[in-house]
Design a protein around this nucleic acid. Sequence first.
DNA 1: CCTGTTCTTGCATGGTTCTGCATGTATCTT
DNA 2: AAGATACATGCAGAACCATGCAAGAACAGG
Lengths: 252, 252
Amino acid sequence: MLAAERREHLLDLLARTGKIVAKDVAADLGISEDSVRRDLRDLAAEGLCQRVYGGALPASPAVVDYDARQTVAPDGKRQVASVAAALVQPGSSVILDGGTTALAVARALPKDLACTVITHSPTIATALIDHPRAELFLLGGRVFKHSAVTCGAAAVEAAQNVSAELCLLGVTGVHPEAGLTTGDADEAAMKRALAARAADTYILASCEKIGTASPYRVLPWEKITGLITDADPHDTVIGQLKTLGVEVLVAQ
Amino acid sequence: MLAAERREHLLDLLARTGKIVAKDVAADLGISEDSVRRDLRDLAAEGLCQRVYGGALPASPAVVDYDARQTVAPDGKRQVASVAAALVQPGSSVILDGGTTALAVARALPKDLACTVITHSPTIATALIDHPRAELFLLGGRVFKHSAVTCGAAAVEAAQNVSAELCLLGVTGVHPEAGLTTGDADEAAMKRALAARAADTYILASCEKIGTASPYRVLPWEKITGLITDADPHDTVIGQLKTLGVEVLVAQ
DNA sequence: CCTGTTCTTGCATGGTTCTGCATGTATCTT
DNA sequence: AAGATACATGCAGAACCATGCAAGAACAGG
């Protein structure tokens, strides 16, 4: 592993997990703690991180301000994203929906993960440009401005030509009776088309979506593999979903 | 193995694996590490990679990010963009290429202009999300990371299904004899496909492109309507182009 | 076909940078 | 307060690098 690459890795880790433990990283990468410490010292000297006893933390808020605004996903979404990102196997293909939670998933993917990402969101495509080993496929079509994703006939048609192991879908409503719902008919159709092209479909649902419903039905429960959420596992709605046979992955 | 071929190999390797270890490549190709190092040094000098101890990494994404996000396009590009944006008639359709100059054009479009923008650049699509009256169509396909645009068979096929009054195309080289050129074969093909779908094609060429050539020919002079540039109108190369019958719009 | 020039390549050299270890010190935990 | 953990420093070996040089290939002109 190149020294510069190692430093990249550290920054990436810091951005994703919010902290670095020198000992752990050294063990992970199979290098001495001294090297890690030296790197951290250098990074701190450049203002890229804050050195603390035992490891490092992100640089002071003032410095990361700009990045932070971009990366700022509420904790819940970040946790959901992190669980979802872990589902993506090296070498596999994943269909990634648009939306802020899906964007958080894109950002939670390790920088050096070799996988194929298929998406209908230009925002997500842009976010993944700097993942050198990720193969990117963008589904074209009319851009639906409200959600910043492509939708409509052309986009659905484009989706017919891809397939993947995994589909990670965002929705705006998760309700025991109403099912999975969203605010636009075209968007709902697009989500259906995406889900149909993957072996497994997981729903990304940060806790504020649970128990709510939007006008347009996306999918019935039978069509999905599971739900990823940061909601309290003992929540009554979550309980109802489990009764319906939905696999619930809880992000804490 | 030819020197140029070797450099291609290095760039390819860099794009695929995200890093180059001089030692390994030298062993793989059966050449001395010195040659590899010399190549890497040259590539780095051209900004095509970032030289680090032990090998090389992709040209710093941080720099690209910075450029892309900061609205600060160099004055020249902004002037070119402003002239190009003025060519877009209300109610018309325009095919917009990727690249920094095209991005500047997108930003130069009046916020309330009602038009249809067709693009293969997710970056440009994202930039136009907040133009409420602009209809946006994104051409899908495999994302070519170096330029952040979709390229390849699927993208070219998608381009066959659109048409427009105007096409605004960026290139990396504008040369009287070599014609319009760019650095990637797939990208060149995509640009040709885009130009073929518009009644008029204008080339966006900030002054540093004038008189230079890249490996792959995009279009001959006959296929384009005009050139938009901020170069000195009395420049000898510009004079030669005019002699060739190219309409030159000079941005001041 | 020959000759001189230019470019490329591999090698040798000497300098620079990196890395892991050892040591003594600082900091944390109990 | 004492033990454990983390740290900075110095050091030596290793890896890496720029430079200069010479041999060879490619090329142009005669």
